[in-house]
Write a protein that binds this DNA or RNA. Structure first.
Lengths: 282, 282
DNA sequence: CAGTGTGAATTCTTTCACAGCG
DNA sequence: CGCTGTGAAAGAATTCACACTG
């Protein structure tokens, strides 16, 4: 819990686990919905279900924030909304700039979820001169030339990159040079940024590939029991590339299947529990 | 096929760790780029840098696939591209349907990253009759009424939901009933699906909130070096903890962030390493 | 030797299960 | 009594570090 926090235990002391931070927005959304329905309190069980996690995890997560619940009763919805918002830094206004107003950029600009969460689209920036001045989501698009000025004038610290992959790094560099310290990147590229700058990536293609992996596994399960390295089965574009000498395949066979028993309770949950990034660019 | 006793261990899809699966697309992208530049081989170090991870992790990941490298040399690019593609199930064609052709849906439809990765947009579906027939990204939008037929006719197993939150669950139910077993959800809602169906969520609002959390932390850290240490071991920095009874107390300026001047060693982490989802809908 | 492959050590997460408070 | 808050146990994921091989 929050109480026993020491003062800077030397290096790395994140306070709240990253995994927990990543779930707070989820709880917040569920709580907001309850709040709108004027529900006064929720139990960890109910809230967990609404957020798509299990109650033990939720309670543990909340325990990092402090003891905001009431034993035998549950959590006060309004109070918790406030506490989580504060923890996430949403009680303040965050101006955001979106660079790259293509299909995706426009979609983001039109997203209504910003304002309601403390975010404000301060500006839309695009490199195409033809876009300049055109209103998107009620905001006039500005040209890239103005980038530095816009960021400076508005004290923006969060930038969203929705440009094509090729322009991403360059835009990123300018954003960082202009003072941006947090970037949400939709371009399918690995951005390199100086220390101190946070980058989160959203990549559709990657998400689909992860789904494909599981999908493939399901299919093979119901039709073919043991999947072998079979090279045949005609490959689309990729041709068999028996390059490396030892083409001998190795079955994954990581640990021993023999299973060390283990097996946790029920399992079965709907959301992909702990994964990674996700979407793409225009 | 409906009665498939699909049992998913929640984690570790029988062989390859979930965390590794989530990174394979990253490696694949980096490898593809190398391939296009006709680079014959790469060392774990180089590839890791290109993918934004560290070499130890990369080697460990690859070890789950098998021994595809050559000691003292590195990995054969083409061969590895094939192996990873196969592992991810990208050597086959995956028809995909996108439901909800608003700003985001259109952006997704226009995304070029599909075809190059084994995905094919089989259909665009929207509930608005006015949209029916209109071409988006070269494909005529079809009405929701056709949903079941489309999925059945094309043998689609992966669906993308880009509808408003309110319609998501309903669309989801129909998709599942029609035979879809993998869903990529852009709507800010927790979808409930029967066992055996995979759901991945992409939520922009959540990503931004996570960034805000870190941003807030940075600000408090640099701006307040000698921050008044947490109330002498008593309460954390958390403002006063009133009582979860009345609530409804919204205070703009956050009191004092719960100290914990952690300061992480590497703030410039490229990929959100072990987090969660990411984007949003129209 | 350079660089992979991997057991072992370490760190982070999740889950269990239950004491204890309202 | 019901439900929170939490130590402790169990499980992943990441990192180390080094034997071993082409």
């Amino acid at each position: 819990m929050a109480t026993g926090r020491t003062h800077r235990p030397a290096t790395r002391s994140r306070g709240i686990p990253e995994a927990t931070v990543a779930r707070l927005p989820l709880y917040l959304r569920a709580l907001t919905a309850l709040s709108e329905r004027s529900v006064p309190t929720v139990s960890s069980e109910e809230l967990a279900t609404a957020a798509g996690v299990n109650s033990a995890k939720l309670r543990k997560d909340f325990s990092y924030l402090g003891s905001y619940g009431t034993r035998g009763v549950g959590y006060d919805v309004e109070y918790l909304v406030y506490q989580i918002s504060r923890e996430l830094g949403l009680t303040q206004d965050w101006p955001v700039v979106i660079v790259g107003i293509g299909n995706l950029g426009a979609a983001l600009a039109n997203y209504g979820g910003f304002a309601s969460r403390g975010f404000r689209v301060a500006a839309l920036i695009d490199a195409d001169p033809a876009m300049a001045g055109k209103p998107v989501a009620g905001i006039a698009v500005q040209h890239t030339d103005e980038l530095e000025k816009i960021i400076d004038d508005n004290g923006v610290s969060i930038g969203v990159i929705a440009t094509p992959a090729g322009a991403a790094q360059q835009v990123c560099d300018r954003l960082v040079a202009a003072g941006i310290t947090s970037i949400l990147n939709f371009a399918p590229t690995v951005l390199s940024v100086p220390e101190g700058v946070d980058v989160r990536k959203v990549d559709l293609s990657i998400e689909l590939q992860i789904l494909a992996f599981h999908e493939q596994r399901k299919a093979g399960e119901e039709a073919t029991p043991p999947e072998r390295e079979t090279a045949g089965t005609g490959e689309p574009g990729v041709a068999t590339t028996p390059k490396p000498s030892a083409a001998a395949s190795h079955r994954p066979a990581a640990g021993g299947p023999g299973g060390t028993g283990g097996h946790s309770g029920d399992g079965n949950r709907q959301g992909p529990d702990g994964d990674v990034p996700a979407v793409m660019p225009a």
